[in-house]
Computed example of a mutant assay.
Amino acid sequence: MIVDAHAHFLPRGYPEGAPECFPAMEPIDGGDDLLLVFGQTRFPAKQVFFEAEKRIEAQDASGASAEVVSPMPPLLRYDLPAGDGLALAQHVNDFAAELCAYDPERLIGLGMVPMQDPDAAAGELAAIADRGLAGVEIASNILGRSIGDPAFLPFFQEVERLGLSVFVHAMPSPSDRLPMSAMGTYVVGIEGMYSAASLILGGTAEACPDLRVSFSHAAGGFAMSLPRANYFWSGAWNEEPRDLERAVMPDDGPSPLDYARRFYYDSMVFDRRAIRYLVDLLGADRLLVGSDFPAMLREDPIARTLRSSGLTDDEWGQVASENAYRWLGRTRP
């Protein structure tokens, strides 16, 4: 059994009379595909983005048993007025519930919330749970603010209280330090690292010990920064016993690595050597299959690189499906 924990959907349309700032799905000549038009975004969307039957067919073709489907990241527009952002989220969440109702065991939905208004975002979580969705997708930053900012702590506390899951998708933040050509490559690594580190450094991980959160693309460069962070905490190399005389920031609480091992990470890192590092550092019980489908093509067959990474049968069973259901807080079928 293989669960693709990083896949996306788009609603097939938006209600008449919606605010002008809403997206539009425009027909594409010569077929049934649609063009997402949202601000500067122009994205051609194949039917598999919004037709449940097509998604199941695509799962069967690739060898996937189920997908965790989250909104296509361009929909996470936190620059919209808060009321419009909430209305958009509610429409997207309604569509997610409709899509997943086609086959709830094979299509597990995540919704979205207007993180530009943390109170409204927290207030929408109960409705997400009522729709049968497993949790929410959020961006790695909120208009340049880290998700570990104390302003967002009540939101995460409500997520934890309701037993929902969070998927953090790396998104560009306002910056001119790298060219636009880096937005889909290096920035993903930087943003993933910032978002995961901020949950530790901002106190969210401490305040919400039962929070179930996953990061796209293994939180980018986060895993490479952890040994250094752990050294500053412990004064020791290689996770050897703490040496408080050498520790720069001694702390009686969990180590950075202990906190990091509470999170989940999709393993779409494009190289088996990177996967081996993640398994060695964080544990096979922390990794999920991910593909970014259908925005990106799946490997053929799905998780081909994972399968070739030298995992034991037990490790493969965890990564292929067991971890996904633990992250979702659901019983594996």
Rank of each mutant, 00 (worst) to 15 (best):
D94A: 13
L88C: 09
G109R: 01
F95C: 00
E124R: 03
Q116P: 09
P114M: 10
L107H: 03
L88R: 04
A96Q: 07
L110H: 06
R77C: 07
E98W: 00
V92K: 02
D103N: 15
M112G: 03
A96T: 11
D103H: 13
D79L: 02
L80A: 10
G111D: 05
G83D: 15
L86T: 03
R106H: 09
D84K: 03
F95Q: 01
G111F: 04
F95E: 00
G111S: 11
Y102T: 11
G85F: 03
A101R: 14
A101M: 05
D119G: 09
D79M: 03
P73S: 10
L125E: 08
P73N: 09
V113E: 04
A96K: 06
A126I: 05
G109V: 02
A89P: 02
M112V: 13
D119W: 04
D94Y: 00
V113T: 14
G85L: 07
N93F: 00
H91N: 07
P81K: 06
D79K: 07
G85H: 07
L86A: 14
D117F: 11
P118R: 10
D117T: 12
E105W: 08
C100N: 10
Q90M: 12
L88V: 03
A96C: 15
A97H: 05
L110I: 04
D79V: 03
I108V: 15
F95I: 00
N93E: 03
P73D: 05
Y78D: 14
L110V: 02
L125I: 09
F95S: 01
L80E: 12
G111A: 10
A97N: 06
V113Y: 03
M72P: 00
A122V: 04
R77D: 15
A87P: 02
L76H: 11
Y78W: 11
H91I: 00
P114H: 07
G123E: 14
L86N: 02
G109A: 08
L88W: 01
M72Q: 08
A87C: 06
V92R: 02
A120M: 14
G123Q: 12
M112D: 01
G85S: 13
D117S: 15
P74I: 11
D84E: 15
G85Q: 09
F95R: 02
L99V: 05
P104I: 11
D119A: 15
L86E: 13
A97C: 05
